[in-house]
Design a protein around this nucleic acid. Structure first.
Lengths: 195, 195
DNA sequence: GTCCTGTGTCATCATGTGTAGACATCACGC
DNA sequence: GCGTGATGTCTACACATGATGACACAGGAC
């Protein structure tokens, strides 16, 4: 039983962890395509060949990074003011996770695509759907998807370098504005669509 | 004066045009990174080496594609129901343009990045900003950016293969829902946030 | 000590990429 | 007919990428 020590010279668990952490960062910063295994290895301080050994390949590492990011699952939905602000600030600090990227860019690898889909639903769509259903709104799932997609658009747009104001505004400020525009406040009467 | 004839066997203008059109399509379908000059040439039925000759390189071709897409500039903003629906249907038919991709993913090439920014502002942000300013809302530019980013999120999310319902819903249906959730209806009283 | 398994390092391969240049072929003026 | 510039075609290069396997070495079992 030598696996307990942390500062071992040769420690596969540690190498694995370093790779995973670097992968989360890089996939978040540059997306899956533009991140290279060599760069991940360099940031982790670990030989990139170990990616293949420990994860099986770049795609599997991506999926693992997706799962690792999910670790801090929160039992709240986007329309919860606290959660919204927290999410905004987290993205400010650590950048968007690999998950958010998947929302707007289809993956070539269907396996990665599906992992992203499952994670996204569990973390963001489903809580929102529940809220909408609870509030008795029509088509809760579709509404939840729309809000999530819109929200992700704003989050990513903020860092894309394309929007001047969006990049500069503070996260608390933005949170208020977002809830103002995105969130259908409960007190608004349900729109009667003629159909 | 032989440039007038259209069906010439050798016609640089025609080759250029074919390349440009194929580039717009491919950049829209797969994004800048995943599109290769060889594939563009193949789709255009033109030798890819001509890309370098006529445009200077892949990046310059991308910028040209951006400009070409702008051709159908409309004098309307996203909150105009007709324009919204039209945009939705166009994306349905032809996919998101290369422009929309730039909203959520920064480009490696700063020149391309800036071209995307300028085009985006002229086509989408600025009209919305004008509307908001006309309506006397506070921070019209920031609001415009938020709405555009959110809208792009939905458009791209629709095709990312991550959202089930979003991918299936019809564009007219979606347009109604979008105006319902995204658009701050003028008649809605400004929400009084207790804080 | 001597093996032996886990772990790390390195070189290399197969493939795809953008780009450049050499060469061929056409249109057109003379 | 023939040269000349424009246009198109093809090959090759230099490079990056993901993957793989051979080898080196540590660290404990016996």
């Amino acid at each position: 039983m030598s696996g307990d020590r942390l500062a071992r010279r040769r420690d596969s668990a540690r190498s694995r962890e370093l790779l995973l952490r670097a992968a989360v960062e890089l996939f978040a910063e540059k997306g899956f395509d533009r991140s290279t295994v060599r760069e991940i290895g360099e940031r982790a301080g670990v030989d990139p060949a170990l990616i293949a050994r420990y994860f099986g390949g770049k795609t599997q590492l991506y999926i693992a990074a997706l799962r690792a990011e999910r670790g801090d699952t929160v039992r709240a939905d986007l329309l919860d003011p606290e959660y919204l602000l927290e999410l905004l600030e987290r993205v400010d600090r650590r950048g968007p996770g690999p998950l958010l990227r998947a929302v707007v860019q289809p993956h070539a690898d269907p396996e990665a695509q599906d992992a992203a889909r499952a994670t996204l639903y569990a973390r963001l769509v489903e809580p929102l759907r529940e809220r909408f259903a609870r509030e008795g709104r029509d088509r809760p799932e579709l509404r939840a998807e729309i809000v999530v997609a819109a929200f992700v658009g704003v989050l990513l747009g903020r860092r894309s370098g394309v929007f001047d104001g969006l990049a500069r505004v503070g996260s608390d400020d933005l949170a208020a504005l977002l809830r103002d525009t995105l969130a259908p406040d409960g007190d608004r009467p349900p729109p009667h669509r003629p159909e």
